[in-house]
Design a binder for these strands. Structure first.
Lengths: 274, 274
DNA sequence: ATCACTTACGGGTGACGTAAAAATC
DNA sequence: GATTTTTACGTCACCCGTAAGTGAT
């Protein structure tokens, strides 16, 4: 059998043109490459090189052999990459959600329930979430509505109440509740990755101006948004802020966890623990 | 890198199901296979097996790896086979001819002119000869007519005169020449591999009966065929036989050597020596 | 007891490095 | 003199085999 190292040496020589250059590329001594080339000819019982006194070049057969070497080595690389990727996919659950809130509560629970698994989470659009669930980019998705379909397992998770977050001196700070209409036309700070909430507030407050910021922080006196979930999971967000629930029905949603029926077995420990 | 022997061990285990059986198939001791499987997991940094106390089975990742192993090993086999075949083809000239006569004279010359090359010869139909010349099944062909085409090099070789071969007591033995019409309707022994000559005699003597024999020998008192070439190359065919040339124009042909223009360089030493 | 796998230890093949020689530029 | 290839020789890695141990049937 032709061992892999021989193919590597041949490929290196093919790419470099001289044994010395090949040896350098391979980080080995040059006589090793010389021997390997001889050994290849020995094994194949074929002349692969035209040898002059101090020069050695691949003949046609040698070039063919080098092309094969490349192909086989590439295939071996592919093998390693694919196997690692596949193994990783078996040990990774990627959860996609239409909003960050449910992920905040889901991830700690999931980490505990699926010991040994790597968790990965992302906020995405409903369309991409569904597509990703089908093509296994996502192992579980979180939508703001149920999905009655026998291909899925759909389990009600929990609800989220959108709130307005204002500094204490803001005119609305004393309200017990507030409507989108009350705030329409004003300026807001909005966390960049709020998922579908962005659609909701833009639709209900079409005259509002929304300034996006990457970090989730109270860095401005402008009103911003929070929710019962974010306040529970990140208590610091209450600091120096008054959080007033919206009263519009669109400000409260119920989330549903959705997994493919065929992967339900794998995720049962998680679904049971919620 | 994953050396080939590891892939072989994995494939054997995949095919056999147990380490012991794999070891037997590989003609090595069983602990070696055990170590190889561990080493594969080491290299890939992936779990390939589910291990019970005295049982080891491939998991999903392991099966994927085994499939890759098979593919790579198959490809390596293919590499070896193709390279040897290609090398062989570079050192082999296969000459196809429409009749055996020209090969008799050509082969000795060719052997001398193309030292180091292996010669191979075959009698074939014109159609297959031309196809074979294109697809490199033949490196050179011999036809009974020129082939004026710029893709080919066509060189007149020599002529062959068909003769009737009869025992001394045959009625025709005293003729100085003879026609196909004279002999039509009689029985003949015909060597099986005469190429286009069979078509000629069958067409010119439609009422003749031709008995084929595999060996080129005078084993019967029936008339048979010979030619100036066969008599020159195989003098023993004169023994106890009278050879009478046919006078019909179809009984004399001129042969042409034809090679692809692009391979002419390789065959120049041969073409020059004729 | 037999079978299957793993671990431990020793041996031999062979891949690599160093050194040196031959040949070319 | 610098570069390139080949040959020679010593070393060390590592693949394999043997032997022993554990657990299951």
């Amino acid at each position: 059998m032709i061992e892999i190292y021989l193919l590597e040496h041949l490929r290196a020589f093919y790419e470099c043109g001289t044994l010395s250059a090949a040896a350098e590329q391979l980080h080995i001594a040059q006589p090793s490459v010389s021997r390997s080339m001889q050994k290849l000819e020995d094994i194949l019982e074929v002349t692969l090189f035209e040898r002059q006194k101090n020069r050695i070049i691949l003949n046609e057969t040698g070039k063919l052999a080098a092309e094969y070497a490349k192909r086989i080595l590439d295939e071996e690389e592919e093998m390693k990459a694919h196997i690692k990727a596949y193994d990783r996919s078996l040990h990774t659950l990627t959860i996609g959600s239409c909003a960050p809130g449910p992920l905040m509560e889901l991830l700690p629970t999931a980490t505990a329930s699926l010991s040994g698994m790597t968790l990965s989470a992302a906020v995405d659009t409903e369309e991409k979430l569904l597509k990703g669930l089908w093509n296994s980019d996502y192992g579980m998705i979180v939508l703001a509505k149920p999905l009655p379909n026998e291909d899925f397992i759909c389990k009600e998770y929990r609800s989220e109440q959108l709130m307005l977050s204002v500094p204490p001196f803001h005119p609305a700070a004393s309200y017990k509740e507030i409507t989108f209409a009350d705030m329409d036309g004003q300026n807001f700070i909005m966390y960049a990755h709020v998922g579908f909430w962005e659609d909701v507030v833009r639709e209900k407050m079409p005259h509002g101006k929304f300034f996006k910021q990457e970090e989730l922080a109270n860095s401005s006196d402008l009103p911003s948004f929070s929710s019962d979930i974010t306040l529970r999971m990140i208590p610091s967000r209450r600091n120096n802020r008054i959080n007033i629930p919206f009263s519009d029905p669109e400000s409260r949603v119920t989330y549903y966890l959705i997994v493919l029926a065929k992967t339900e077995k794998l995720l049962r420990p998680l679904l049971r623990n919620l």
